[in-house]
Amino acid sequence: MKKKQTVTIYDVAREANVSMATVSRVVNNNHNVKPETESKVLEVVKKLNYRPNDVARGLASKKTTTIGVIIPNVTNSYFASLARGIDDIAEMYNYNIILTNSDGDHKKEMKVLNTLYSKQVDGIIFMGNELLDSVRTELISERIPVVLAGSVDPQKQFASVNIDYQKAVYTQATKLIEQGNRKIAFVTGGLNIPINREYRLKGYLDALATADIEFDDSLVFDVSNINYENGYQLKDKLLSAGATAAIVSNDRAAAGIINSMNDSGIVVPDEFEVTTSDNTELTKMMRPTISTITQPLYDIGAVSMRLLTKMMKNEEVVEKNILLPFGVDYRNSTK
């Protein structure tokens, strides 16, 4: 099969009998061209099926109008909702998105970063549970705008859009205390991760201190690979620690705890209460439905993209670390 020959801007200019600069103005919607000339050029563009070369155009202008987005898990509805907000605002401001999946693997994060740099992206939106020093150094060295979406940076070197995770967990714990729970477990996916150690755990501790409840470290469960199976296996440890409720940082682990309790004849929420963090579809599909923090996921993505557009255009940014409102939806896994 004969390879299709690429049509260039020179071919269009020659066919329309105009300069290449005129063709460039027409295809870039610069209306500083006579209407009859613009019409003639557009006819030739259509006739030859000309497609502007974005890469070449980016090399010339040093702008590619392309954004790199790094997601740890594209199958997770939490990150999918964030990505949708990013995409809608990117389209509004005429930016293209290159979506990459890191699988939450730090080596792969470095690999996709280098891939995005090779494509000369104008900015990056990073989503991930943790920002390692190696990734931080790489992001800083490239000197292009970066926004963290749903990811925290305790050092505040990068712009970010989140909710107040510390206050959210404080709200959850306070509600459980008000319902008579004095032994509340805190189940998290790794205390080495800043979002858990610096924000969620502090919210839990603040709520205990406010209620004058002594902290019991046996009620903190640090689960490195937090998932449904590991949540299911936690039941005996939770009960042995005397817990009557659990705050869980992962919806699947929360579902595992609930099913394990119910399978053992322990009724949720009458005998054990569970509340979780991400408000994925699973929280509504479970029986009982799971009480959860509600995050404006679409808005986090949308605001992140808008913030990035301002940074890329060197517009004034009043606040680089934005906290959006959150809620707590009390469903049937709590009393």
Rank of each mutant, 00 (worst) to 15 (best):
N53V: 06
N53A: 05
G58C: 11
L59F: 12
K62A: 11
K63A: 02
T64V: 04
T64S: 05
T65W: 14
T66M: 08
T66V: 09
I67C: 12
G68L: 00
G68A: 07
G68N: 04
V69M: 00
V69G: 00
I71R: 07
T75G: 13
N76P: 09
N76L: 08
Y78C: 00
F79H: 01
F79T: 00
A80G: 09
S81E: 08
L82V: 06
A83E: 01
A83H: 01
G85T: 12
G85N: 07
G85A: 11
D87T: 13
D88F: 11
D88P: 12
I89K: 05
I89E: 07
I89L: 06
E91A: 14
M92H: 09
M92Q: 10
N94H: 12
Y95M: 12
Y95V: 08
N96D: 02
N96Q: 05
I97K: 01
I97P: 01
I98H: 02
I98K: 01
L99F: 03
N101E: 03
N101G: 02
S102N: 11
S102H: 12
D103N: 13
G104K: 04
G104N: 10
D105C: 10
H106Q: 08
H106R: 09
K107R: 11
K108L: 12
K108E: 15
E109F: 03
E109M: 01
M110P: 08
L113Q: 04
L113I: 03
L116H: 11
Y117Q: 06
Y117F: 10
Y117G: 02
S118M: 11
S118V: 08
K119V: 09
Q120R: 14
V121F: 06
D122R: 07
G123S: 01
I124S: 02
I125N: 04
I125E: 01
I125V: 08
F126Y: 15
M127D: 03
G128M: 05
G128A: 07
G128P: 04
N129A: 05
L131Y: 06
L132C: 14
S134R: 15
S134F: 15
E138L: 05
I140G: 10
S141C: 15
E142M: 09
R143A: 13
R143K: 15
I144Y: 11
P145W: 06
V147E: 02
V147P: 00
A149V: 06
G150T: 12
S151R: 13
S151N: 15
